[in-house]
Amino acid sequence: MTELLQTRTTAVWAALAGVTVLSWAMGSGMGISDVETAGVVILLISLVKVRFVLSDFMEVRTAPLWLGRATDAWLAALGIMMISRFLIG
């Protein structure tokens, strides 16, 4: 059990779970009252979570640099596209 728990992967999982609960609370009317601000924060949090899944779970962190650059470029494009479309109604 110690082998499973005392790893960076486990720390990342715990952090992701905590941030997920934070996002859920913001989407449930707790925290930020402005819908647009809360929406942007929720989207940004989801993108940060995705980056951690890519870097730690999918091991992009230890992969050739081009793979990290490619996934970061996709993530940046996705973020710009989603947030701009969300805000510009």
Binding site: S28, G29, D34, I45
Partner: peptide
Amino acid sequence: WIVLFALLYLVGQS
């Protein structure tokens, strides 16, 4: 699913 959860369930509800 992380992005789907944000889009389908959370964004716009506050």
